[in-house]
Write a protein that binds this DNA or RNA. Sequence first.
DNA 1: TTTAAAGTTGCGTCGTTTACTAAGGTATTG
DNA 2: CAATACCTTAGTAAACGACGCAACTTTAAA
Lengths: 141, 141
Amino acid sequence: MRLPLKTEYACQVLAQLASTYASGEVRQVEELAAAEHLSPNYLVQILTTLRQAGLVISRRGKNGGYLLARHPEDITLAEIAMALEGGALIESSPGNGGKSAERVRHAWVRVNEAMLQSCGSITLTELIPPRQPQDGADWVI
Amino acid sequence: MRLPLKTEYACQVLAQLASTYASGEVRQVEELAAAEHLSPNYLVQILTTLRQAGLVISRRGKNGGYLLARHPEDITLAEIAMALEGGALIESSPGNGGKSAERVRHAWVRVNEAMLQSCGSITLTELIPPRQPQDGADWVI
DNA sequence: TTTAAAGTTGCGTCGTTTACTAAGGTATTG
DNA sequence: CAATACCTTAGTAAACGACGCAACTTTAAA
C-alpha cells in the first residue's frame, strides 16, 4: 500500500503553513511550491482540496495566498489523509461474496480504526521544519 | 489507500485453510477458488506467493493441494500483508527534496510501525468462517 | 476605474499499476 | 506411462495517479 503522493505533498505544504502560523501572514502558491519542490499548478489542486476540507483558508486577488485554518496542534495526520482520500484511511473492497469475505472485511475495518487513532495523535507541530539559518539573508561578510 | 484485492483474497483463502487446519488434510485450488468466488488461475498466483513467504505448504501431483504451514493462531494480518506487498504496510515515497519532506516521511514511518503492531495482533483464528450447517451432506429425508 | 496579481475550475493525457487470462511446464501417484 | 494437480511466465485491458494547460473569477493597488 503506497501512501499517495498527493497526501504526502499535502502534509508538506501544511507543515510549511504551520511554520508561519504564528505570524498570521498568508503564503503564496509560488513560494510554497518552491519551498517543497512541487509544481505550482499541481499544488493548487491539493490546496483546493484542503480548503474544501476546512484545513486552510485562502484569500484571492492581489496579495492573496493561503494560511492555516486552525492551530497546528489541532490538525492531525488523520484529518489530512481523510481530506485527500475520502471515507477511510484503509479502504477494503466491496467484497466478492466468498465465504470468508465478510469476516476479512471486518478485520480490516478494525485495522482502519486503529490506524485512525494513531494518525490522530500526530499533529502538524511535529512536522514543522527546523528553522532555516537566515534563509535569504545576505549577512555574509 | 485502497487495500489491494490480492491481499484481501489472500486473507480469504488463508481463512479457508485455517478452518480445516486441525484435520491436516490438503485443500485443492479448485475447491478453494469455488468457496471464495475466485478464479482458480489467479488464486494459484496468490498461493504461490504465500508459499514463498512460508505461510502455506503445497503438495504437487495427484491428491496434491495446499495446507497451512503453521497454527492459525501464529499467522497474523501483518505477515499476510507483508507477504503480498514487500517492504512495509504503508510505504511513503522516496521524497522529493522539499524542506518538509524528511519530517513528513518520518511521521508516516511511525504510522507504519503502529499499523504493523495492530495488524500483528489479529490472527487467522479470528477469520475462520462460522461452521456451515452440513455443507454438502444429503441427510434430508 | 483600470490593471495585473493571485486563486478557481475543469479537462486532457500519459505512464504505471492492478487484476486477471491463458498456455505451456513440472512433479507425483497408481 | 498416463492422469492429475500444482508451477511459471507472458500478455492484456481497464483503472488509477500524477500531473499540465487554459480559460475564468476575484480582489488589491495604482
